[in-house]
């Protein structure tokens, strides 16, 4: 098999297949992670109290404080172990097999892991952006008769979103690259495909080089989209620079 033949007939089709899965992992994880980050960041910045506040703090502490690989392994291998324990406990009692819900597909485990991890980081960008808004903005809205929720959505959120956008975009770009960890849960995306072909044909240089080019392309596209968004949402004088 010639080198060109290897490229065209083996490596590139394999990595292309991986690209499809990568996109299918990244897009929902980015969207859900951002949404989660918005809710958690807003909750913490607006001073959620008692149980909810503690829960949010705990979430961020855990998911920022532990390696993503460990989290992914937990979702994919840890939950089935838990399911086994639950089965041993509840099956004799005649319960319906709810524990089967803990058996995640590689794809579901990866999206769940990415979303929860990304959400924790996103929430910090959102929280910082909200805290950067002067109290007077909220006060002025309340004085006009806005409810707390209205003031948040009409006055705080639009400014916070714009201020958080560079940070949130950064996290999404980071997510594109850590999506390669999906191979830990046997979801074979770009990196997984490159790795398989590389060990099969023992051609590590080309395989991983190509994988790198694909990630670079994804990041370039994401950067362009984020840049477009930033420009489109720009308001004169809003950025503090």
């Amino acid at each position: 098999m010639s080198t060109w033949q290897f490229y065209w007939e083996t490596l590139i089709p394999a990595v292309n297949k991986g690209l499809g899965l990568s996109i299918a992992l990244i897009v929902p994880s980015a969207v859900l992670g951002l949404a989660l980050g918005l809710l958690v960041g807003a909750g913490r910045a607006m001073g959620a109290k008692k149980t909810l506040g503690r829960l949010l703090n705990l979430y961020v502490a855990i998911f920022r404080g532990t390696p993503l690989v460990v989290q992914l392994v937990m979702w994919f291998y840890g939950l089935p172990s838990l399911a086994l324990i639950l089965e041993g406990y509840f099956k004799p009692l005649g319960w319906p097999p709810f524990w089967r819900g803990l058996l995640l597909s590689p794809y579901a485990a990866a999206v769940l892991g990415f979303t929860l991890c990304s959400g924790a980081y996103q929430s910090e960008y959102v929280r910082g952006a909200i805290l950067s808004i002067k109290k007077g903005q909220f006060l002025a809205a309340r004085a006009l008769g806005f409810s707390k929720a209205q003031a948040f959505w009409s006055v705080i959120a639009p400014v916070a979103l714009r201020r958080a956008l560079p940070g949130c975009g950064n996290e999404i770009i980071y997510l594109i690259k850590y999506s390669s960890l999906a191979l830990v849960v046997t979801a074979v995306e770009i990196t997984g495909q490159a790795k398989m072909v590389a060990s099969l044909y023992f051609r590590h240089l080309e395989c991983y080089l190509l994988a790198a080019v694909y990630y670079l392309a994804l990041v370039t596209v994401a950067t362009a989209i984020l840049g477009y968004l930033e420009k489109k949402l720009a308001v004169p004088g809003l950025d503090p620079h």
């Binding site: 002067k134 007077g136 903005q137 006060l139 002025a140 809205a141 004085a143 006009l144 006055v155 639009p158 400014v159 714009r162 308001v235 004088g237 809003l238």
Partner: peptide, 14 residues
């Protein structure tokens, strides 16, 4: 029903 004016305006920046 009560209008309020602030020392530092507090216009909505966006």
């Amino acid at each position: 029903k009560i209008g309020m004016i602030f020392q530092d305006f507090n216009l909505f920046d966006h």
